[in-house]
């Protein structure tokens, strides 16, 4: 994994990476809310912190964004050291907090202008950028409406728009889809994908593994304040020895089919449970065509084919002994 690499990898990262988090810790009384957390995010990369309630995601983010002080460890954003007492590096970050942090009595535009001014923007520059963001988040036609009259999804979009306003190097989204209808959720995910494609680095926390799988180039699995494992989706699954399964239901010469299938390199194991064949496979999506051809060629007539791939949920279960969602 990246963290285990030697000093060479480290110097490369220090220059290029948008975010370098190293040994970050924070206690609340006796509770170690965040415990020696380290990770890096490269430009254009989307990094996910996946963990259940109370895992320490928001606390980590609050330290990354310089809202609260770390007990130990460092955060560097675009090469600059971040801390609550040093406002300047904060301009590289766009924070979208978990709770809607917008003024309900102000319109969408007024909210954007307010936070833009806090970023030090002003004049025609700010005006133009506010309009751009309003269009980006699909609120241009509702720009003058008070945000308290918005739907949940619209408020979430405005919340994100505020984080994007000053074109930060790193966008931090803390569970941006919580309490949002499926349609708005999809549109939020799509805009994150678009931003990432456009080259923005994203730090994304969630306890939905589907979102982490869909959006994130790399994922850190966090629980009880510690990063339990880190890597791409496939790396994480391999790490825990997870393999794909294919279930072939049908009739015919099953014994012959089993022999024939065992010859395939992708197939590790074949079992017969009376009704169907159960195959343990490497890379099920690519191997499935060959498997189906072999089985029918061996005289089996197929009624159903089902692929089961291990997901991050099962990885999480294996790493922590508990389910991702309560």
């Amino acid at each position: 994994m990246a963290g285990d690499e030697d000093q060479v990898g480290d110097t490369r990262g220090a220059v290029d990476d948008v975010l370098v988090v190293d040994g970050l810790s924070r206690r609340f009384g006796e509770l170690r809310a965040v415990d020696e957390v380290s990770f890096r995010i490269a430009p254009g990369e989307t990094y996910g912190l996946l963990g259940p309630n109370g895992a320490g995601k928001t606390t980590t983010i609050s330290m990354v964004a310089g809202l609260i002080r770390a007990d130990a460890g460092t955060v560097r954003v675009a090469g600059q050291r971040m801390s609550p007492s040093h406002p300047q590096p904060k301009r590289h970050i766009g924070l979208v907090p978990q709770d809607l942090a917008i003024y309900p009595e102000l319109s969408a535009r007024e909210n954007l202008v307010f936070f833009g001014r806090l970023q030090g923007m002003g004049g025609a520059d700010l005006k133009g950028r506010v309009q751009e963001v309003l269009e980006l988040i699909g609120l241009a036609d509702r720009a003058k409406d008070k945000s308290k009259n918005f739907s949940g999804g619209m408020k979430r979009r405005l919340n994100i728009g505020i984080g994007l306003l000053h074109e930060p190097h790193l966008l931090i989204l803390d569970e941006p889809t919580v309490g949002v209808d499926p349609q708005s959720r999809n549109s939020i995910l799509e805009s994150v994908e678009r931003l990432s494609t456009a080259g923005m680095a994203v730090l994304y926390t969630t306890h939905y593994m589907e979102e982490a799988e869909r959006l994130c180039d790399r994922i850190g699995i966090i629980d009880t304040g510690r990063i339990q494992a880190e890597g791409t989706r496939d790396e994480l699954i391999r790490l825990t020895g997870g393999v794909d399964q294919i279930r072939l239901a049908g009739t015919g010469d099953l014994t012959h089919a089993i022999e024939s299938l065992r010859e395939l390199p992708a197939v590790e194991q074949v079992d017969h449970d009376g009704l169907a064949l159960r195959l343990t496979v490497h890379g099920a999506p690519t191997a499935v065509a060959e498997i189906v051809t072999r089985a029918t060629g061996a005289g089996m007539s197929l009624a159903d084919v089902e692929i089961t791939r291990p997901d991050l949920e099962s990885v999480f279960l294996q790493l922590t002994g508990k389910a991702l969602r309560d």
């Binding site: 964004a65 310089g66 809202l67 609550p84 406002p87 300047q88 590096p89 904060k90 301009r91 970050i93 924070l95 907090p97 709770d99 809607l100 942090a101 917008i102 003024y103 309900p104 936070f115 806090l118 970023q119 030090g120 505020i162």
Partner: peptide, 17 residues
């Protein structure tokens, strides 16, 4: 309200003292 809704906290994510 501003404290509870987190707007004040959020303003500290901007480069302000």
């Amino acid at each position: 309200q501003a404290r509870r809704e987190g707007v004040i906290a959020r303003s500290f994510s901007a480069p302000v003292r």
